[in-house]
């Protein structure tokens, strides 16, 4: 069904030299995405602690995926394909920071970081001050229900 749509849809361009140039750009984008992925993997191996590794992990997740989607759009040259690929980018943009935040929070609380590599840690005193009774903040998932408007719905 999707293949039919792709075939039926209009293409960006038809002329031969332009197509070659677009294919070339697509190839460069793929190489860049592959480079970012490799750099992320190397960063994951070489960076000292879990929090630093998370930074290395974020870039193929965002820029790499955007580059590859752009490469597909350029090499297939169809508007429908571009529309089909938008959800991929939207989901990545929405979910990657959430999972990164949750993993970072879990990593911090589990002590999966090297305090020696931290120049400043302004979170630790606040955690200590809040004590065991209440951690600073409920994060994105724990709702204390105080600041929130009343809940409606059935």
């Amino acid at each position: 069904m999707i293949a039919d749509l792709v075939r039926a849809s209009t293409t960006f361009v038809d002329s031969e030299p332009v197509a070659t140039i677009l294919d070339g750009i697509a190839a460069v984008l793929i190489l860049l995405a592959a480079f970012l992925t490799l750099a992320a993997a190397v960063g994951l191996i070489r960076f000292p602690d879990a929090l630093a590794r998370l930074h290395a992990a974020t870039k193929p997740q965002i820029l790499g995926v955007i580059l590859v989607v752009a490469a597909i759009a350029l090499s297939v040259r169809s508007w429908v394909v571009l529309l089909l690929l938008i959800p991929v980018i939207v989901f990545q943009l929405l979910t990657a920071p959430i999972s990164a935040h949750m993993v970072a929070r879990a990593g911090y609380r589990a002590g999966d970081y090297d305090p020696d590599t931290l120049a400043v840690d302004e979170l630790a005193p606040d955690v200590a001050a809040a004590g065991r009774s209440e951690l600073p903040g409920g994060g994105l998932d724990d709702e204390p229900g105080t600041a929130q408007g009343q809940r409606g719905g059935s």
Partner: peptide, 21 residues
């Protein structure tokens, strides 16, 4: 969080604080 190099570790909603790594 999306820009590599910075990352939100903890959020304090009531005081509108972000703890950024």
């Amino acid at each position: 969080s999306l820009v590599p190099g910075s990352l939100v570790v903890e959020v304090d909603r009531t005081n509108a604080r972000l703890y950024v790594h």
